[in-house]
Each structure stands twice: as C-alpha cells, then as structure tokens.
C-alpha cells in the first residue's frame, strides 16, 4: 500500500509522510513510544486459495499493554494473532496479505526473515507443548541451545532467570536438570512454555488461548503472570473467555465472522469501554451473551 519505491531510502520517513489509506475501523489508541508496539494494517489471511479467514483487519497492539482479542469460535482471532509473528504461513497453503509493523518496520516486507521475526515476537500456544525428549532445563533454553554458541553457564543463568520469572523455580528446582517436562502439571507445563518463549528475549509475546486447556487455579496463575510481564513485554492474547479479557487486558478487540465466514474486526478500544459501553451493537450482543 505504501509506495515506498517512490520515496526510496529512509523508510521510516516514508511512513510518516505518506498518508496511509484509511482503515475500515479507525483505531486511534494511545501509543506508548517507549516500547515495542505492533500495528496491523489491512491484514487479510487465507488458508488456501479459496478459504479466506480474515479480511482487512487493522489493529494496534500498544507497547507494554495487554491487548485481548475476543470473539466467537471461527472468527479468525487465532489466525490474526498468528499473522503477527508470521506463524500463519507455516501452515501449508496458507498466506497473508497486508502489513504488520513492528516498531514501524513492516515484518511482511520481502527483506524480512520470518525466523528473525519469531525471535522478536514470541508465541505461547493453546495447549502446553513442551518438547517431550528434552528435560525441563533443556526445554527452557531450547531456543538458545539450538541457535548454538552459548556456554552452559550462560544457558543456566538464563534458564534460572526465566523460570523464576514465571514463578516455576521453587516448584521444579530439585528436578529440572533431569526431570522430563511430562512430569509437570498442565499449568506448570504452560508456564514452562512461557519461560521457553521468554528465554529468547522477545519484545512482544503473543498468546493464543493460553489458558483454555487449564483449570481455574492454573488459569489464575497465568493471568497473574501476564499482568506482571507487561512491564517488560508487549502482550497480545487471544481468548474466548470474556471474563479473562476483562480481568487482564488493557485493550480489547472484538472480531466476528458473519455468514461469509470471513473474520473482520468489529470494534476495538480500552477494555473498560468495550465491556461497559461498546459503540457497536454486535459487540454489545456478544459481550452480554446474546450469541457466541
């Protein structure tokens, strides 16, 4: 969309001077300039040539805030969040179109290596997915270990720091060098996966329904953790649990797929506003439980 070829070298300037096309849903949010923020513009995604999952989604993920994306099943909220670190295209045949900016840089530009993007924008998945053949420790530092070039001592230092960060250290400290990750409970495994994501030092953490496989107490602990993490990370979370969105998030985006099964952004804004005084009728209907 941005004719960067015309305004060649300083790309950041081009972004400032060229007026971007007006997105269907204007999203004037307070943007914290001091941290990593993301901005999706006119993002569409397909699962194959004919199956379009989301269309023209434009959304800001402000720095050091938790942005929740809610909506009924099949509204494309997971698809959207997977586009934010280029994990969507990992699925065979899937593709995305549009722009996603990370601190003003388009992660979908041809020069950008998706592997680098995923280092900066980490992801936690719905079901805890620790690597079964690795110990707890090896899981935590898997990203660094497989990258190579880190000494054992520095790996241990990182591992201890991030495991403590997710409040798992006391629970696993006696066994984590030899214990299998499968010996942990579901909630512990999910915290392990969060620690594993933090170990590669991302700036943004995406969470795709991180608590939907967990019991209420484990869910509570993850939510607590998310709130703590937003001091250091920018967080986007997909959830179909509206209470969770209202408990932890600062901003909420509501997505919906209508008869054509293509997900679109209906409304987004501060969580308190979305949950108390939404501007869209469809948002209100969903929030109040009239469908979905």
């Amino acid at each position: 969309m941005v004719p960067s070829s015309k305004l060649a070298p300083p790309i950041s300037e081009a972004d400032v001077t060229v007026p971007t096309p007006v997105p269907p849903e204007p999203v004037p949010l307070e943007v914290n300039q001091d941290g990593p923020s993301m901005r999706a513009r006119e993002l569409s995604a397909w699962y194959n040539v004919t199956r379009k999952a989301i269309e023209h989604v434009s959304l800001e993920v402000p720095a050091h805030r938790i942005t929740a994306i809610i909506g009924p099943s099949g509204c494309g909220k997971s698809t959207f969040i997977r586009c934010l670190n280029r994990m969507h295209e990992v699925i065979r045949g899937a593709r995305a179109e549009g722009h996603v900016e990370l601190n003003g840089e388009d992660i979908y530009s041809a020069q950008v290596d998706p592997v680098r993007v995923r280092r900066v924008v980490g992801m936690v998945f719905q079901k805890p997915n620790p690597f079964p053949m690795m110990t707890i420790f090896e899981n935590v530092v898997a990203g660094l270990r497989l990258e190579g070039g880190y000494s054992r001592a520095s790996l241990e230092e990182v591992a201890e720091r991030v495991v403590a960060r997710v409040a798992l250290f006391d629970e696993v400290k006696d066994v984590w060098k030899r214990g299998a990750s499968s010996s942990l409970s579901g909630g512990q495994q999910q915290r392990l996966c969060i620690a594993r994501t933090l170990a590669v030092e991302p700036a943004v953490v995406l969470m795709d329904e991180p608590c939907s496989a967990l019991d209420p107490i484990a869910t509570y602990r993850i939510e607590e953790l998310m709130v703590q993490l937003k001091q250091d990370y920018t967080i986007a979370i997909v959830t179909h649990n509206m209470q969770q969105a209202s408990r932890v998030s600062d901003y909420t985006a509501f997505m919906l797929a209508e008869e054509d099964r293509i997900g679109r952004l209906v409304e987004c804004g501060p969580t308190s506003k979305i949950f108390t005084n939404p501007s869209e009728r469809r948002t209100e209907d969903y929030i109040t439980g009239r469908f979905g």
Binding site: N85, M87, V90, V115, R116, R118, R119, G122, M123, F125, K127, N129, P130, F131, P132, A142, G143, L146, E147, C193, R196, T197, V200
Partner: peptide, 23 residues
C-alpha cells in the same frame, strides 16, 4: 509427531531444517 511441537520450535525462531533435525 504432533504439529504443535513443530510450531513450538518454529515460534522460538528456530529455522525449519533445525526444527526437523533437532526437535
């Protein structure tokens, strides 16, 4: 081998070939 494992590795910024060989 479940796909979530491949995705977990890819999401850590591990390239595809290394994901296959090491995970």
């Amino acid at each position: 081998v479940p796909d979530p494992l491949r995705e977990a590795s890819l999401a850590l910024g591990i390239p595809r070939w290394k994901t296959i060989l090491r995970v």
